[in-house]
Simulated assay, not measured.
Amino acid sequence: MENSKSLAGLIGPTLLAVGTTEAFNMDIFAAQTAPVVYLNGTLLFVAGLAIVRAHNVWSPSWRVLVTALGWLTLAAGLFRMVAPTAPQAGEGLATYLLLAVLTGIGGLLTYMAYRPSRTATQPQAHP
């Protein structure tokens, strides 16, 4: 669980920052060159691989988001490395929805990482 919280503490704020700043700077992505896309893909691939190697947990809890994001990041990075000249996501509803979903997941992971932990000495509420 500690590994999940540590990774969520990195991934969550990163997704909040990326989702928000990309939405405000959409115009700069239209003119990206293939080398920049390839470099971005390499960084995404390494980040995704690091997450998957450190956290390949498939349990029915919020922790599965960390693993799923690791695999999705790895796949997105590999795609950008294989096809750096492919058209990039443009300004449109689908792109903004994707950024909103990523920002929402970032918020959830940030909350899960930084919320106070319940310990054995704290009483748990019973309905």
Rank of each mutant, 00 (worst) to 15 (best):
E2C: 01
E2T: 14
N3M: 15
S4M: 11
K5F: 11
K5G: 03
S6L: 15
L7E: 01
A8W: 01
A8D: 04
G9M: 04
G9N: 04
I11S: 01
G12H: 03
P13M: 06
L16S: 02
T21N: 10
E22Q: 15
F24Q: 10
M26K: 05
M26R: 06
D27H: 13
I28W: 06
F29C: 03
F29L: 06
F29H: 07
A30P: 00
A31I: 07
Q32I: 05
V36I: 15
V36Q: 13
V37I: 14
V37M: 07
Y38L: 10
L39Q: 10
N40G: 14
N40S: 15
G41I: 02
L43E: 06
L44H: 06
F45A: 11
F45Q: 01
V46W: 06
V46C: 12
A47V: 10
A47W: 06
L49P: 00
A50D: 00
I51A: 03
I51C: 04
V52P: 02
V52L: 13
V52A: 08
V52R: 06
V52T: 12
H55F: 15
W58V: 12
W58K: 14
W58Q: 12
S59P: 00
S61D: 15
S61A: 13
W62D: 09
T67Q: 07
T67V: 08
L72K: 04
T73G: 08
T73L: 09
T73A: 09
A75P: 00
G77F: 01
F79A: 13
F79L: 13
V82Q: 09
T85W: 08
T85L: 00
Q88I: 11
Q88V: 15
A89N: 07
G90M: 10
E91F: 12
G92E: 06
L93K: 05
L93V: 14
T95P: 03
L97P: 02
L99P: 03
L99D: 03
A100W: 04
A100N: 01
V101P: 03
L102P: 01
T103P: 01
G104I: 04
G104C: 07
I105A: 08
L108F: 11
T110R: 05
Y111F: 15
Y111M: 09
A113Y: 04
Y114T: 08
R115I: 06
P116R: 15
P116N: 13
S117Q: 12
R118A: 10
Q122W: 07
Q122P: 00
P123Q: 13
A125S: 13
P127G: 11
P127R: 10
P127W: 12
